[in-house]
């Protein structure tokens, strides 16, 4: 009994836990995609100073970054169904919100939390593009949207990529708190498993390795994307 960690048990735990990696990734990737859309929307609303929406967007960015993700998740999981319930009763349509899977709330919560950060990242990225680029686009008769989409966004993307990678890696790790609202993802599965077999050390070593492996993989993927987006900073077009 001198061996602290038994390789065979590690393997067994690995097989049991690795199937939860896709769950974690699905939550992270979905939240990231939704948060990116939300972030761009919020950034544009604030940049264009859209009446009514702009102060709301300001408040959102302020709160979204000030609140711990776990609290956002709790608010979404416990408060949102109540609000929806009241709302649906007042419109006369009944819907049982308990049927909505917890993972949906996890995704909503993580999206809201990440979106606030992304809105700021996108703002910084867009502001990093020289003012003259938009002026040139307007001067040749493009609309603001055409210039924004075809010129500004593509240059800003290069700036935003490393920051988005940071945010995404954070998000992968943050999915672990989805367990607090009953979502059975990687960390949740690890907790359940270790409680049942009392192999805390082994389980958490494996879980750490799995998070680590996933993060490293995505770090590399983001580097490749960044490289591809920056094509215009390199040599003559092939």
């Amino acid at each position: 009994m001198n061996i602290i960690i038994e390789p065979y048990i590690l393997m067994e735990i690995f097989y049991k836990l690795v199937r939860y990696v896709p769950v974690t990734l699905a939550i992270a990737v979905t939240s990231m995609l939704l948060a990116s859309i939300l972030g761009i929307l919020v950034m544009v609303i604030r940049m264009k100073k859209v009446p009514v929406l702009s102060p709301i967007a300001d408040l959102y960015v302020l709160l979204g970054r000030a609140l711990p993700t776990m609290i956002v998740l709790y608010i979404v999981f416990f408060a949102l169904p109540i609000i929806l319930m009241v709302f649906s009763e007042s419109t006369g349509k009944k819907f049982d919100f308990n049927q909505i899977p917890a993972v949906t709330f996890a995704i909503i919560g993580l999206t809201l939390s990440t979106g606030a950060y992304l809105a700021e990242i996108f703002r910084a990225a867009v502001q990093s593009v020289e003012k003259g680029q938009m002026e040139a686009a307007l001067s040749i008769g493009m609309t603001w949207w055409q210039g924004f989409y075809r010129i500004i966004l593509r240059q800003a993307a290069v700036f935003a990529m490393p920051l988005m990678a940071n945010q995404f890696l954070n998000l992968i790790k943050n999915t672990s708190i989805a367990f607090m609202i009953t979502v059975m993802e990687l960390f949740g599965a690890a907790n359940v498993l270790s409680a049942s077999n009392n192999r805390y050390l082994e389980v958490y070593v494996v879980v750490a390795l799995l998070y680590w492996g996933t993060s490293i993989t995505f770090e590399k993927i983001f580097l490749v994307i960044e490289d591809k987006l920056a094509f215009f900073k390199k040599g003559i077009k092939q």
């Binding site: 020289e130 003259g132 680029q133 002026e135 040139a136 686009a137 307007l138 001067s139 040749i140 008769g141 609309t143 010129i151 593509r154 240059q155 215009f232 077009k237």
Partner: peptide, 22 residues
């Protein structure tokens, strides 16, 4: 404004070529 921009073009002091395009 859009219309007058379509009838004019500008050459800038700092060139302002679209850096992401050839």
């Amino acid at each position: 404004i859009h219309k007058i921009r379509q009838h004019t073009a500008m050459v800038f002091q700092m060139y302002n070529l679209f850096t992401n395009k050839t």
